[in-house]
Design a protein around this nucleic acid. Sequence first.
DNA 1: AACTAACCGAGACGGTACGTCGCGTCTTACG
DNA 2: CGTAAGACGCGACGTACCGTCTCGGTTAGTT
Lengths: 207, 207, 207, 207
Amino acid sequence: MPETKAPDASRRSERSRRAIFDAALALVSETGYAKTTVEGIAARAGVGKQTIYRWWPSKAAVLLDAFLDLAARTAEEAGAAQGQTELPDTGDLAADLRLVLRATVDELNNPRYDAPTRALAAEGSTDPELGARLTAALLEPQLQVFARRIEAAQAAGQADPAVDPRLATELLVGPLHHRWLHRTGPLTHAYADALVEHALRGLTPRP
Amino acid sequence: MPETKAPDASRRSERSRRAIFDAALALVSETGYAKTTVEGIAARAGVGKQTIYRWWPSKAAVLLDAFLDLAARTAEEAGAAQGQTELPDTGDLAADLRLVLRATVDELNNPRYDAPTRALAAEGSTDPELGARLTAALLEPQLQVFARRIEAAQAAGQADPAVDPRLATELLVGPLHHRWLHRTGPLTHAYADALVEHALRGLTPRP
Amino acid sequence: MPETKAPDASRRSERSRRAIFDAALALVSETGYAKTTVEGIAARAGVGKQTIYRWWPSKAAVLLDAFLDLAARTAEEAGAAQGQTELPDTGDLAADLRLVLRATVDELNNPRYDAPTRALAAEGSTDPELGARLTAALLEPQLQVFARRIEAAQAAGQADPAVDPRLATELLVGPLHHRWLHRTGPLTHAYADALVEHALRGLTPRP
Amino acid sequence: MPETKAPDASRRSERSRRAIFDAALALVSETGYAKTTVEGIAARAGVGKQTIYRWWPSKAAVLLDAFLDLAARTAEEAGAAQGQTELPDTGDLAADLRLVLRATVDELNNPRYDAPTRALAAEGSTDPELGARLTAALLEPQLQVFARRIEAAQAAGQADPAVDPRLATELLVGPLHHRWLHRTGPLTHAYADALVEHALRGLTPRP
DNA sequence: AACTAACCGAGACGGTACGTCGCGTCTTACG
DNA sequence: CGTAAGACGCGACGTACCGTCTCGGTTAGTT
């Protein structure tokens, strides 16, 4: 086993965990990721540094968990009942995709999420291990929302069954992320709509 | 006067500049961007730290210039005459796009470019100023290659003139970068071809 | 009441006490006093840290008790009946002093005692409270051995009654400890003998 | 060579060196050796920690040099002209020894010297390397003062030439240090005088 | 040909943060 | 309730780099 010393998770202080998440998110929002330090997080959370290092290997890992926790709480208070993993299916594929893509645009425009998301994306692109966790926990579920809706559309004869749903998803999300990440243009609902329209033309079933 | 201290560029040591670029690229490739330090670059280049701080404001700026220099040299020895600014126009839009997108795939797969590119993308996504320089110097020219070819196609009646060439470009490049950055799938020529095909269906002129 | 929290000594685990003493002495001998930690003692003794802190206020106090215990056990198995409190009186003062001083030399040369004794002496010289306990428990009894024998000699007319027995004792023990503590020379039986001789005779040339 | 990285001593900042000495001595006097930290010394001296670690291996080494420096400065402003290494020789051995031993008593009673001296003695008794430096730099010169005077007395027929001057010195200094270190009695001029008298006369009753 | 002003290598400096160690307290589960 | 175990807040450790700041020692471009 690669673990040299496994702390007893059952004795973990929930109080500290929460305080660390809050402090981490607050500091990243206020001063940016680069200027956020483990020492600073510990001080702000009223926690010993060791308590951070006991449970996380790096600043990035702390922020990832903090962000995951934030997302989970947000989702919980929003979707609550039916679970956040499901997507709308009104029968109108374009309309449904627009809805979700517009939501994605809103999220990327939300300054509360922007800073940590950029920081995590940056760190994840460099650190493969963290990138994998990040992808699995945040990106993949979001992509699945699109992919499943497209599969449903294919089953219903509304979309070309020959197209890989995965590629179709990337056709929608890829340009959006690209524009966001490189700040090469404004992220608007109109842009989301245009993306859906042009991506769909490629998916429209052949007569 | 914005500059507090303007070093005399005419007396600058070309020898040191080269050595710093080489050291920076080597260290980023070998140990990663995060573990690369200004001190390390200076030591490896056999250069005083001050010589770095005299000409660049940050590690990222050094790496950006180093990478730009690498790209310029590579382009020079490849395209020689007219350089990378021109694009093929065989009359077959799909074929031309495939050609360039496949080249992009090859570049992203080249480990020599992978590490610095990721590092710069990461740093640029966090630091807006650097991001702007990065986009202007590296990303934008590449996007222009696509955009101009698409405009030419529109002028020639091979593509729907109603589509924003910029958006069309993002439809091609966005998914590719997304997959590369998040390592969510293999980057192959087949993938490039599929991207071109489905993006084009959206661009095909209406009967 | 001076004690804020008086643990019930009657329920104390003798097993743990022994284990702590053994671990403490072993660690001090093996790695030195400075590198010996309460945590290390607890781990080696298979004991919770709290069990140490419940009964001792500091690392030095543990070691003092451990050393006292060691001394007691050693004395018990050696002197058995009347113990170390009595001294030989053969009528020959010089011979008796030589005997005891040689024993002291042997003790200081014994590596088993050397490390803890040094550690305690060091700690005691800095921490007055501990120093007092240390002196009372270890040093004073040893000095009394000499002082009483000298008093007896004075009573028997073998020694100048004008001399303070205490000072005479220090004249014997002081140089020995000095040489040991500062490692300024070898500790041998010959040295012990010379000390006795000159302390008794003085430096004044004989007529 | 055992040195891994030798800093360039010629570029050393005298300003920092002085500030570190002052801070170290002040802190030891004010809060005691145990509570004095390298971090604290650095902060008080307005110096980076690395500047301390660059030139000294440990807190004890800093204090040793600081104390040596203090002693040197004190000696300089006191003995100035003829050099502090020489001793009085009035022809009366007892008087001369009393004079120097009384001075030693005064020094040990001086609170300015007491704390650092105890700390160094403690550390030196545990750390052989430091102890050796300490002995060589502070203790040995002091002992030489006595030893040389006694040798002169032997040459002049005032002292038994058969006695090892070294042992005679220890007979004087040992008891004094013993009493000081273990706080087993008051350090007075009377005590110094008594020591000289009995060391010279011996304990043997006069005929 | 000497002067001089800049860059250059080297690296010491005041700092900040790192990740680790040990302190002494507190909490949990067991006997 | 004493105990083994160990998480916790805390403080200091010794190290790594930061970006600034002298130091000589080359190199130009004047004088």
